[in-house]
Design a protein around this nucleic acid. Structure first.
Lengths: 336, 336
DNA sequence: CCTCCTAACTTAATCGTTTTCGTGGTTTAA
DNA sequence: TTAAACCACGAAAACGATTAAGTTAGGAGG
């Protein structure tokens, strides 16, 4: 590998001058700078990030906590596309991305240890168990941190507007004349809590009282689980006129249960999903759903984290809510 | 940050001894080793990977080329789950993963430059334009390289069995009595070529002659494009009895076109996908498809790359084909 | 008793950068 | 003419680790 030393020798100047010339410092003559720049290119010089990091204590590397909880991490479109836009923005700003795991070398340690070992400038928690003590340790360390869809005290968080999203969805189906609205919610997480709040807020505001048996649970991103939940709902003495599913993907299971019961969407029963995945617009009939703005979620998370990294004193931790929008598909019928 | 020096001072030994003690070298006394180990823990020591990399020229970091070609990278289950299992295996072996982009800092360079800058020990090309000169440059550099689904000369590659997969699929539907088999293939890539070969090989072996208009194209992972292609097929004077789609996801578009034509699957027309995504087993009727073994593809790719990294002289570059398997769903009807 | 070996350390160089503090030499101002 | 200011560059000290090459001290062997 060709280093600063090689360039220095070739140009007959010191290593210091070469470094300054390449880094655009001002105290170096224009002719020397040009000479350095051209020989650097000529020799095919590439900087050594390790040496630079060692000296400057900056790696331009961002650690990503992205755990494949129940196999729905990478393959879950919401997380996948958020990560993609995060990566895009980070790279645009000159940062690289490294996954934070629990092992350095062959031995297992904590997330924080791993982050410190790699010397990342900051950490983004995209997909993880937020209540895990090891995650807590990481969040409340000295490292700049941004989290997605979970707000830690005094730390920057980027949140999808789950309350408003669910509320809007309920108001939409209410506007279509539906009163018997069922909600199959997901696992017990902060996200679920928010959506529940949104659901009940809308109901209260609209003067709706929803029987308890209309509120049931399934696992996120698990069509089979959703299939069963849907079946339970359809077996009730008074069936709902509209079912809100936990997410778009689970809807695949739900629609099966509906078809098995000999019902059609939206003629016999209306449904809506949540997420606004690519798939939602492709299925027929088009799924009515709340589209989360993954592109903005990822971009803002990256931008915020970098802001915290580059201006640790002046930037302040904040909780940013990113608005989604209603995708009015064809699965909610107007009741007369 | 606490460094070797701090531990050395506290223990009253030299930095060298501390380093050796922590790295399990043999020429250090048992009592000193214990003392070093315990004070290291006590002070909360974390090694500095940058310093280590600088000295040893090893980063235990693997670069990943994962370009979001036409938005189907991260969100494409095939790539996403291959990447997941790659990451898992790499981490198990003590390696971390960093994405290779085209910019170091604010300026844009080549993939190779970026890889060299970060000093990765090797590179895995999971999802990229294999014909891009910049990719070629990377592949034929000094770095250990493994590629997925594209075989470079003298470099290790892990390949899904596209020829055999497609061949098996054709033989399966042939076995069900189908003779008028259409194939909507994907974009022009090496993968498509292989599947085409498999398709024609099976036809030849079975004595089938497929009319040219039965072979049509759509974009991978793009239901709308597949929708149109399907429509074209259904408008032919003699329609096929079975349509093979480019991939499971595109099937969503295909099924819409079929339903619009007033046909049912599998009663009126049979179909099959390709990939074996999670979704394929969830839709109703269950999709008949060829399941690629993403778990093994990722795992083997990582293991092979690490083998090349750790034994560059003795290990040899090879092209490994990973077998998939037929998922016999419910979308191919037995013809009488 | 002397030599030699070995175990257990230490010394010091080195990896490639960055950055502070000089140091001459030249220009400018008084 | 002289002092101050400025410019372009160099010397050298880090950053934190690894490792080859010494250096002890103590014991074994003759």
């Amino acid at each position: 590998m060709v280093s600063l030393k090689d360039i220095a020798q070739r140009c007959g100047v010191s290593v210091a001058t070469v470094s300054k010339a390449l880094n655009g410092q001002q105290d170096v003559g224009e002719t020397t700078r040009q000479r350095v720049l051209s020989t650097a290119k000529e020799l095919g010089y590439t900087a050594n990030s390790a040496a630079r990091a060692l000296k400057t204590n900056r790696t331009y590397n961002i650690g990503i906590l992205f755990m494949d909880l129940s196999n729905s991490g990478f393959t879950h479109e919401y997380f996948a596309s958020t990560l993609t836009s995060f990566r895009l923005e980070a790279e645009r700003c000159g940062y690289d991305i490294t996954f934070i795991s629990r092992n350095v070398g062959q031995t297992s340690t904590s997330y924080l240890q791993h982050a410190l070992y790699r010397g990342v400038d900051g950490v983004a928690i995209i997909c993880a168990d937020f209540l895990d003590p090891m995650v807590q340790e990481l969040v409340y360390s000295q490292l700049p941190v941004v989290s997605l869809d979970h707000a830690f005290n005094n730390r920057t968080a980027v949140l999808s507007d789950n309350i408003n999203g669910m509320e809007s969805l309920v108001r939409f189906v209410y506007g279509k004349g539906h009163r018997r609205i069922a909600y199959i919610h997901g696992n017990n997480t902060a996200v679920t809590e928010s959506r529940m709040t949104g659901f009940y807020r809308a109901c209260e505001a609209l003067g709706l009282t929803i029987p308890d048996e209309y509120i049931t649970q399934c696992e996120y991103h698990e069509p089979i689980s959703c299939h069963k939940a849907t079946k339970r709902l359809l077996a009730l003495p008074t069936t709902p006129t509209c079912i809100l599913f936990s997410d778009d993907y689970s809807y695949i299971g739900g629609i099966n249960a509906i078809q098995e019961a000999g019902l059609r969407v939206p003629e016999d029963i209306s449904v809506a999903g949540y997420d606004g995945t690519h798939m939602a617009t492709m299925v027929s009939p088009k799924l009515t759903t709340w589209q989360q703005n993954t592109q903005e979620l990822g971009r803002i998370a990256a931008a915020q984290l970098i802001e915290r990294i580059e201006h640790p004193r002046t930037s302040l931790p904040q909780h940013i809510v990113v608005q989604g929008k209603l995708l009015e598909g064809e699965t909610v019928r107007q009741l007369d």
